[in-house]
Design a protein around this nucleic acid. Structure first.
Lengths: 124, 124
DNA sequence: TCGAATCGATTACAGTTGTAGTCGGAGAAT
DNA sequence: ATTCTCCGACTACAACTGTAATCGATTCGA
């Protein structure tokens, strides 16, 4: 289940780190930040606290620090956000989004073949 | 061109109205709000002002009121937001998003046929 | 002409977000 | 035992959002 509170952009950066590897301490998380988001440790702690409040992560005590782990799965989050986009911009319909993406991305012949393969698989 | 300022959820509601029909006065916009977002006129005016500030809409004077029109096209906005989602959640790749959506949506046989038709069209 | 209705502009105000500083307590080092 | 270090908690603070009230000017109706 996805709690209804939205995960912000900065918070998502933290989630990605925890999805890749958990549990981690706040310091560990800070050490794994991408270069273009080299936040201070206090900032990371604030974001972790907020994620705790949103019940997106949990922590358990390890000596005198916390080990954080995701509570929301990446799959759930991705599904949720994808649906949100489809609802907001494509009237909840999948096909218009697909058409838009296909056109936008200028699919290569290889992409098309790959998609056809995926579709065949689904048929069965 | 899309100015980099993000359009918020409430603001998007206004944009949708203007995309459907423009130019409109603030009062016209308010009258066309969906039922689940029956905001007061002042609220609509605030949102229009913010959209002006973000250069997402323009207005021109008509007697003593303004007529508002979108400056950003819906196509551009949709493309922008779709790309944002793909970048944030699918490493900028189209295929993973397609796979995710296809699985999620549980495509019907008719959908699949439709997609195949679209793909054929693209091939040529 | 004088009050009523209407406009846009300004102000309000709480909640979220991005980004961080500070503080009190608990452990670690000496 | 005392100091230093590190942790989580709390505080900060400006920008953005959602939602609106109010105010001064103008115009319309009586």
């Amino acid at each position: 289940m996805m709690s209804s509170e939205r995960i912000s952009d900065a918070e998502l950066t933290i989630m990605e780190i925890l999805w890749e590897r958990a549990p981690l301490t706040a310091t560990d998380v800070a050490a794994r930040l991408p270069d273009d988001r080299a936040w201070s440790l206090p900032t990371v702690k604030t974001l972790l606290s907020r994620l705790l409040g949103k019940e997106a992560v949990e922590h358990h005590v390890d000596g005198r620090r916390f080990l954080y782990s995701p509570l929301i799965g990446r799959e759930d989050y991705v599904a949720h956000e994808s649906k949100r986009l489809v609802d907001r911009l494509f009237g909840g319909k999948f096909m218009p989004l697909f058409a838009h993406l296909a056109e936008q991305e200028n699919l290569s012949a290889a992409d098309i073949t790959e998609i056809e393969r995926l579709l065949q698989e689904m048929k069965s």
